[in-house]
Amino acid sequence: MRKMTAISEEIFSAIPLPTWRWLGVNEAKVPAGVNIKEAMRQEIVVAAGQQRTLSRQERAGASELHIRLEPGADFALEQAVLLTAGQSSATRLKVTVSDGAKFSYTGAYVGGAEAAAAVEVELLGKESRADVWALYLGDDRNKIDLNYIIRQQGRRTEANMQVRGALLTGAEKIFRGTLDFLQGTKGSVGRENEEVLLLSEDVRNRSVPLMLSHEDEVDGHHAVSVGQMDEEKLFYLQSRGLSPEEARRLMVTAVLQPVMDRFSEEVREKVMSELEGRLSHE
């Protein structure tokens, strides 16, 4: 009995429908050394019609954020998980969105030993919206394990999930992104896109874009693109006077830029400086 409890504690999050076990993507484990029972927990309610923003910088350990958006509320959250060598984190975000409310999220995962994140957004109300963007940079043999789920329940909801990332020097990453159209979510639209740059021979990328539907009057689309740098573009940049390192750095930041642009200036500078530091050390 005790053994079973120990196993269940290790699971941090799971995809809504499991697939083949040999792929190792059904569940995300709690990172070693992180105690999710001691998560720093915050609850936020944004009242009807109000507009709010919140900027959080997460450090090592576990954190949990529960957000409720009342009708017509508009909430923008930015969350930067910037870890130093050897640190690990587990961040959980649960959001419910009522009629006409809008949730906007921008996340970044850079550095550390292991970063696990679970983002769950419920578009409960009619015409509710979620705009979820994230970037990651894996390097120095770290692990990034993300599980994002947007459930669309109200009528005419809109979900947009955009993720960009780059992997170098032994990094391992799993991104699970689920768009779930529940029965009755008529007229809803869902979009999901992940772009991954592979920059080193010893990296491992796993992408799991799930799209589930129990409603016909929806429009869902997901796409994943995984590849390396375009050699011709690199060559062109070098022909214009950039060093190979500068050209490479420019191309990585170009991939991440659409997410970067959504951060406030203060967070953008922090994330950018972390990225620059890591890209110049590779």
Partner: peptide, 19 residues
């Protein structure tokens, strides 16, 4: 329902998925 998984090791792969 659509449940695709891509598991890529190494830097020289080009994988595209669309649903």
């Amino acid at each position: 329902d659509t449940l695709p998984v891509m598991d890529i090791q190494g830097a020289e792969a080009n994988i595209g998925h669309e649903a």
